[in-house]
Nucleic acid binder design. Structure first.
Lengths: 337, 337
DNA sequence: TTGTACGCGTTATCAT
DNA sequence: ATGATAACGCGTACAA
C-alpha cells in the first residue's frame, strides 16, 4: 500500500493469509473457514480495501460494465432507460456505459462487434428497434456477451427479454375511445421496421374489430415517431371529410404534433378532436391539453433488464413481461354532435 | 491467438519483433525505424489486432473511459450532453460512462470519491449544478482525474471549463421584449444554488436597467426549473394587477408551464402574454405556440469538453466560451393595448 | 533503434 | 480449507 489504494496483497499480508484466500472472501466462495473469513473481512474493512476493477477485468476477461446499446430512439425514452438501468445497478459494482449506434451505417454490425470485442462488457441492454434484429442478438451470443432485448412484445426467452404487451394496451386504449362514442378514429402509424409500430397497429385493428368497425384506410397515416411527422400526418387526416373525431398516434411525440396541428387550424382538443398517444413521456403531461396516453413501463423494464444482466444463477427471476395502463388526462372527450 | 482476439504477443511473433516494439508502434513512439513500423503495422492490419483496453488500464493505472457526472439536471439537457460527448469521442478509443449523483445525499462526496478511485477514469465532465461545487473539482484534482466543468459562466481555467454567457444572453433576450414594447415583464427565477439561475436573473436585471426600468419584486417568482414550478409561478404572476404582458422563464420547462397556465385561464399566447424561455430544448419547439427561447449551446459545449478531456498536450485548444443566441418563434408579440 | 525482465492487481490451476 | 504459482495483456525501466 505504498501509494493510493490498498491491494489484495496488503490485505493478505495483514491478515496473514494468501492472496487467493482474500480473493475467495471477496467472491463469496462457499468453501472457507468461518474464522478465516471473519478475520479477512475485518482487515478489508479496516483498510477500506476495494478490488481493482481493471485487474479483475483482465483476469476474468470480463468487465464490470453493463452497456446500453441503442440507435435512434426517442431521447426521453433513452433517459428513462438509463434511469432504470442505474437503479437496477445501484449498490452493485457495475457501471453503465452508453453506446449509440447508427442503424443506417453499413458498418453498424462491425461497429457493434468491435465495441463488444474490445470492451468485454458483462452484458448489454438492446433497445428497440435494434433489439428486434436477431442478427444483433446472435452477434452478442457469439461474442459471449450477455444481453437483454427490450421490446413491445417478447423477443427472446424470459432471461433475455423485457417486454410490454403493446397490442393489448392499444386495444384497450382504442376501446376506450369507442366507448366514448367515437366511430371515425384516425391512426398515425409507426415507422416501418419497428415492431412497436406493428404491434400498436394490430391493437388498433383489434379494437375496431371488437366493435364491429372497419379500418378505413383513408384514416391511417404513416408516421416516423417524430413530432414533425405527427404534425404532418395529422394535417392529412384532418383534411378528410368527414373529419375523424379522434386520433390515436403510435407515440407521444406524434400525438403532440397532432395537438399542434389541431390548434393551428383552430380546432379545440378535445372538444373537436380527441387525441391519444403512447409512451407517457413528460411530453404527454406537458402538452396542452395534457395528453391521454398509454404508459410504457420503460423504467421498470430497464431496471429488470439490468438485474437480469448481472444476475447470478441463484438470483430470483426478474419478470419479463410488464403491464401497460391507460393514463387518462384531458385530451379525450365525447365526440361533438 | 489460440482463442478470441490476437494479442500484442501474436503481433510481435508474426512481425518478428519484440512486444515493446509493437507497443511503440501503437503509442506512436517517435524513435522507431520506418521499415519496422511499416512491417508491424502491416501485421496489425492483417491480424485485425486491437489493444486490449483492460490490460492497458491495468498497466497505465488509467482507463480509456470518460465519465459524465451529473445530478438532477434536466433530462433533455443530459441527453444533449451525451450526444455531444459521444460526438467528441467518436473515432477514438474512449467510451462514455454515465454516473448520476444525488446531491442531497450526505454521502455524495464519498460516492464520487469511491467512483473515481475505483474506475480510474481518464476524465470526467461535470454538469451543473454539481460542476459549480469547487470541492468536487478539488476532489477530482486530488484523485488525479482530469475534469471539465460545464457552466453558465466560466468556472475554471479554459482547459477545464466550457461555458456560455447566460447573463449576456438573457440581457439581449429581455431587451428584445422591451423593444417589442413590453414594460411589465415577469421573471420566473431558477432554484437557489444554481449559478445559471443567478446569471440569468442578473441578465434580466441588466436589461431592465439598460432601459431605465425598475425591477418590480412582485413580478419575480421563484421556480425550480420544473414544469410544475413554472406553472405554479405563472399562476401567481398572472394574478398581479395589472398583469404582466410578458414573462421570461429561466428555462424552457418552466416556460412550458407558463404557456400551460395561460391557456388554463383563457389567455392567448402571445396575444395576451408573451413568453420567453431558455435552453432551446425540444420542449420549446413542441410547445404551442412554439416557444421563443435562448439557445444554450449544450451539444457544442459537451463535444468540446470531451475533446478537452482526451486532449494530448500537442492538440489544438478547444474553445472554452460558447455563444448563445435568441431563437425567435411564436410566443412573443407586441403587447395588447 | 530494439529487446529483456518485471510490475500492474486479480483470478484460476493444482497442489496439499 | 488453504496456498504457491502461473496466467491475463500491456507498459516501463534499463540494458544492449
Amino acid at each position: 500500500m505504498r501509494s493510493g489504494q490498498p491491494t489484495i496483497n496488503d490485505v493478505a499480508r495483514l491478515a496473514g493469509v494468501s492472496k487467493k484466500t482474500v480473493s475467495r472472501v471477496i467472491n463469496r466462495s462457499p468453501l472457507l473457514g468461518p474464522d478465516t473469513r471473519a478475520q479477512v473481512e475485518a482487515v478489508i474493512g479496516q483498510l477500506g480495501y476495494v478490488p481493482n476493477p481493471q485487474a479483475r477485468a483482465l483476469a476474468l476477461r470480463r468487465n464490470f460494465l453493463v452497456g446500453l446499446v441503442h440507435d435512434n430512439a426517442n431521447a426521453q425514452t433513452v433517459m428513462s432507460v438509463q434511469r432504470g438501468m442505474l437503479e437496477g445497478l445501484r449498490g452493485t459494482e457495475f457501471e453503465m456505459v452508453v453506446r449509440p449506434l447508427d442503424r443506417d451505417a453499413a458498418t453498424m454490425s462491425a461497429d457493434l462487434r468491435h465495441f463488444l470485442e474490445r470492451q468485454r462488457l458483462h452484458g448489454v441492454l438492446l433497445l428497440p428497434p435494434i433489439s428486434e434484429d436477431d442478427a444483433v442478438a446472435a452477434l452478442c451470443a457469439e461474442l459471449g456477451c450477455r444481453y437483454v432485448r427490450m421490446g413491445s412484445a417478447p423477443l427472446d426467452d424470459a432471461a433475455r427479454s423485457v417486454a410490454s404487451d403493446d397490442r393489448a394496451a392499444v386495444r384497450s386504449a382504442v376501446a376506450f375511445l369507442i366507448e366514448q362514442g367515437h366511430r371515425r378514429i384516425g391512426l398515425i402509424a409507426g415507422p416501418p421496421g419497428f415492431r412497436s409500430g406493428t404491434e400498436r397497429r394490430l391493437g388498433f385493428e383489434d379494437a375496431l374489430a371488437d366493435a364491429g368497425l372497419a379500418v378505413a384506410e383513408e384514416l391511417v397515416a404513416p408516421g416516423r415517431y417524430t413530432f414533425a411527422s405527427g404534425l404532418e400526418a395529422a394535417e392529412r387526416l384532418l383534411d378528410r371529410v368527414p373529419r375523424p373525431t379522434a386520433i390515436f398516434a403510435c407515440n407521444d411525440e406524434m400525438a403532440a404534433g397532432v395537438i399542434h396541428a389541431a390548434h393551428d387550424r383552430g380546432l379545440a382538443v378535445p372538444r373537436d378532436l380527441s387525441v391519444v398517444g403512447f409512451d407517457d413521456t413528460p411530453t404527454a403531461a406537458q402538452a396542452w391539453p395534457p395528453l391521454t396516453t398509454v404508459r410504457w413501463p420503460v423504467v421498470d423494464m430497464a431496471r429488470a433488464a439490468a438485474r437480469k444482466l448481472i444476475a447470478t444463477p441463484d438470483a430470483p427471476d426478474e419478470p419479463a413481461l410488464f403491464p401497460s395502463a391507460l393514463v387518462q388526462r384531458r385530451s379525450v372527450s365525447i365526440p361533438a354532435a
